[in-house]
């Protein structure tokens, strides 16, 4: 076991750095730039039962220290992911993959997860019950504890691999949803997906994004994500994957202190395609600076202020 390694739901990761779904495609664009096997794993583009084009453009807006996207789960559908994307990925990525899945009904989720569960390359299923950019699906499952329970229960019934529920921050108390997922059998919880946001173009007076609203991400959301990771890690027994605004090795360590076993990096990949590689490379030096011998030892290691 290396100083950077962590165990996520029974699978050893060389390091805790995982590009987040939707910011890394199916990996090839980045494999052209560097050997993506330096990553812990990566979470692939959200996959649905049927092919989806997604939302009309513009789908992107800039914000201070972040961005809004309303892509709307564009993907080729699970059958083509298995027939085309996974074989192509096999040539450049040799580690277990985190397969990200979304859906519009409990049956959709179960169907897609079952198919991906059978794929040798897949290590974990990350079940996205938190996409803010689609109607009648995604986030509606992640904002209601009963619906979240139903989805995870159905997925667990037809799969063998670890199931990680990806949660939405657009709720009053995220620990309620996290506990519902844990009760349904989730092997891990990842959070946060994007925060629902909006921008208006002053010249046209229209929303910048054609879908009006979209998911806000980037460094600006890091404190919110960190807080929710902290709350969730104290509420559930299963491992937590920290996601939201992470862009440096210091952010990774902070997330892990808050309770994350592994850490996903999202929007940072879009502005610096080498972001994840740089974070992995910066970890040993950063650990040394803060007297950390092994990353797995700091998970949830945040200390409390003494009450006076």
């Amino acid at each position: 076991m290396g100083a950077l390694s962590v165990n996520l739901c029974g699978i050893e990761l060389d390091n805790p750095v995982i590009p987040a779904s939707g910011t890394f495609g199916y990996g090839y664009e980045f494999a052209e730039l560097y050997d993506i096997n330096c990553l812990g794993t990566f979470s692939c583009k959200g996959t649905t039962r049927q092919e989806r084009f997604g939302n009309p453009t513009p789908r992107i807006a800039e914000c201070s220290a972040g961005m809004i996207n309303a892509v709307g789960l564009q993907n080729p559908g699970v059958d083509r992911v298995i027939a085309e994307e996974l074989p192509r990925l096999k040539k450049c990525f040799h580690k277990p993959l985190m397969a990200n899945v979304s859906g519009f009904s409990v049956e959709d989720y179960a169907y897609t997860c079952q198919k991906l569960d059978e794929q040798e390359q897949v290590g974990w299923l990350e079940v996205n019950i938190s996409c803010p950019n689609v109607h009648g699906g995604g986030m509606s499952f992640g904002t209601d504890p009963r619906a979240a329970y139903e989805v995870i229960k159905a997925v667990k019934a037809v799969t063998r691999k670890p199931v990680i529920a990806k949660l939405s921050p657009n709720v009053t108390d995220i620990t309620v949803i996290a506990k519902a997922c844990e009760d349904a059998g989730a092997d891990g919880i990842s959070l946060i997906n994007t925060l629902l946001g909006m921008r208006i173009d002053l010249r046209t007076r229209k929303p910048v994004i054609a879908n009006t609203m979209g998911g806000f991400s980037g460094p600006a959301v890091f404190p919110v994500a960190l807080r929710m990771v902290y709350q969730t890690a104290r509420a559930v027994k299963v491992p937590v994957v920290g996601v939201g605004g992470v862009s440096t090795a210091e952010d990774v360590i902070e997330m892990m202190l808050a309770g994350a076993t592994a850490v996903e990096v999202g929007a940072a990949n879009l502005v610096d395609p080498f972001a994840c590689k740089k974070i992995v490379e910066a970890l040993p030096e950063t650990m040394a600076r803060y007297q950390i011998a092994a990353l797995r030892e700091i998970i949830g290691g945040v200390k409390q202020w003494e009450k006076t």
Binding site: G22, T23, F24, G25, E29, F30, K45, F53, G54, T57, R59, I60, M67, N69, V71, Q74, N269, L270, V271, P273
Partner: peptide, 11 residues
């Protein structure tokens, strides 16, 4: 978003 094909922002 990214300009190099990763985010599907400009499809």
């Amino acid at each position: 978003g990214c300009g190099f094909g990763a985010c599907m922002g400009c499809s």
